[in-house]
Design a protein around this nucleic acid. Sequence first.
RNA 1: GCCCGCGUGGUGGAACGGUAGACACAGGGGACUUAAAAUCCCUAGGCCGAAAGGCCAUGCCGGUUCGAAUCCGGCCGCGGGUACCA
Length: 851
Amino acid sequence: MSRYEPSQTEPKWQAAWDAAGTFTARRDPAKPKYYVLEMFPYPSGRIHMGHVRNYTMGDVVARYKAASGFSVLHPMGWDAFGMPAENAAMERGGHPKDWTYGNIADMRAQMKPLGLSIDWSREFATCDPEYYGQQQAMFIDMMEAGLVYRKNAVVNWDPVDMTVLANEQVIDGRGWRSGALVERRELTQWFFKISDYSEELLDALDTLKDWPEKVRLMQANWIGKSRGLQFAFKTVNAPAGFDTLEVYTTRPDTLMGASFAAISADHPLAKALESDPKVAAFVAECRKGGTSAEEIETAEKIGFDTGIRVKHPLDPAWELPVWIANFILMDYGTGAIFGCPAHDQRDFDFATKYALPIKPVFTAEGGAEATLTEAFVPMKSERVRYIRAFAGNETQTGEEAIAAAIAHAESHGYGTGVTKFRLRDWGISRQRYWGCPIPVVHCATCGVVAESKANLPVRLPDDVTFDIPGNPLDRHPTWRDCTCPKCGAPARRETDTMDTFVDSSWYYARFTAPRATTPTVAEDAAYWMNVDQYIGGIEHAILHLLYSRFFARAMQKTGHLPAKAIEPFNALFTQGMVTHEIYKTTDANGRPVYHLPEDIIRSESGATLRNGTVVEVIPSAKMSKSKKNVVDPMNIIASFGADTARWFVMSDSPPERDVEWTASGAEAAHKHLSRVWRIAHDLTTADTAPNPAEDAALAKATAKAVDEVTRGIEGFAFNKAIAKLYEFTNTLARSGAGAAAKRNAMLTMAQLMQPMTPHLAEEVWSTLGGAGLVAQAPWPKADPALLVDDSVTLPIQINGKRRAEITVPADMPATEVEKIALADEAVIKFLAGAPVKKIIVVPGRIINVVA
RNA sequence: GCCCGCGUGGUGGAACGGUAGACACAGGGGACUUAAAAUCCCUAGGCCGAAAGGCCAUGCCGGUUCGAAUCCGGCCGCGGGUACCA
């Protein structure tokens, strides 16, 4: 063979790795462990370039760590429950189970050719009863630990599909599938008490040093801690049972600027007033429309004066009207507020619309009271002058005033300081079939009872149909029938299944003992946890990662994880997308038409279709089927090999940024790998005699390549590691060193390329007589002596502008360097006799002469 | 609105406060070849210049510094997150 032919070599090396059990993770007490994990995929059936990039990154880390002497765990599984399987069943028949396992088989077959160093013996899917059964066991443990409860919650209900919709599934107030107007319904739902951990989940973010700052910030905002005052207004003219109205405020210092109280349309008081048809109509108006961001944003503030009044806590003679307002949320604070229009823009808008008083409480530090045209909302840390103060100094910061106001309320007994969190409990009930059944039974005498663990897993029934809407579990003739684990009487099963985020909240722990008959095994979890490096998309910055952090805590509380795993992911890396141009034309009706990359002819002047139609090229968009800009990894592997795909997605762009897929870039990657192969191949027969000077120079270049590639990988700068490998290839190709020295350099090259292009590395390694598999060879070390240069070239600046350079021995003292610099011809010329005021010598870096 | 992040050649991107543009793509020129492909070599930020060389350049304006793409302040633009959160 005299050409680089990945289609032949790649399967060969994959078989060799399998035969040698190279990637089987083993608990080895003699070695440090390293657990690298990429977010597992949803089995859609096709891998895409994003998967290739994600898994290649993890693979580079895994292979590098294995070579560096770690016992590596690098597993793969499938996030296999969820709606698409049911949708497929509804659209084209078949069973979600068959669809899912078929897709898994397809995707596994597409992933294996990538040559990832995955321990496939640990593979599982979350829809395996062996997995979700253990999840049910943990659910029961969590019930016992007080982390699970039921309550009524308002949900988006699709009356046609007869299902609950997530907020994202409601589009313009309609169900995304059925197009039916979504209703808001109250259902009894299961919840995890994640709010028990609000404070801890927030505080512990500070310990996650190797997480992106951005993700920690997003989580902190999501948890949303606030400190404020909760107090009760005494009411006037309110219905029975509503003698007081509890409100919460983060700005108690503005109490003297109150001009109204407002309650949510879902507030119990509003419901109590609904017998009045005008109230009922207004409340119905408020409930209309979805909960989506755009709708809320564009909704106008509307209110309804209930006629009820409340007494100001600091002045019983002062009464405020109580309004029902559409911008008050029931599930934050108490669902009721007092409005201070002068210092809150929403209140200001509301007060302006309904002609309510606007009284400033404070002004800018040197300012005077004036009529406001908008709310005055300075930073809480800013000092302001209080003109309607009741606590603290006249001039103080907002923070000081808030603390003083809380202290005042507490000492006078009309309110208490309260810390609230935005984070709400995690509602996990889904009225769907393809999810983990909640292992609970409803008994007429015992009530809601956890299923006996001996009866786990509660399996999904196979004989279900999707020809009619609703939850197949609800209408199954026998599945719901069971006996109460407590009293033995006939009972009915819970038919809700769990949110699929539950499945992905502990899979990382399951990988440490994937076949165990308990959720985890103490010794395995103790050895393998935590995940040392977690890699995935930024889109999971909040929910998945927060739920996983909660689950690690819940699993610790229920004895399934050791204390050290309380934060399950030591380091997190969020990689960018793979993007591609979009090719667009417009049809006769002005609608956009998109074209596949393979149908496009690129030329200097632009792009056209085969028939010559000019195509608009939209650069760098996320790959999506509808835009037809998807590049199928399988086509790339078929034409260039897996190593080319791997090499390309790792080169050029920093891993955290998006990478633009270009055909020319892919070809260039392939050309380079061919070149490396050819150089290695030519070296097998080369017999150039040693050349001491050139051999030494090559050894130095090799050491530098080792150093820089190692640092590139360690620092997640794979693009820089690859740039160095390009450079090293150029150096090697042009080197005048002897054949033996070049072969040595090429063996090191194989080792350095192994994490990125493992098949080619093996081919080069074996061609040049490397021992065993390069995948099992220890990572090369750079001789520190070779990293130091004997002489250095120093640029000379005159007044900060580069004017000359000199080459001096690296260890020359600064005073000597100064002398040589000042004696330099160009320096003398540029100084033109001007006296030297100062000279700065940065050893090994630069000389700056100030004249 | 608020909170992050980012603005560097035709393009993707390099650059502990120290030679801006590594490496790659696209481009230009050449060698080899009957020809093409492949390969190899050279060139390549802009402007002026025959050249030597000079001047200008990291979104814009200012500041700190011997020295700023990098640090600070202000502006402009782009991207992401997020919200009637009281």
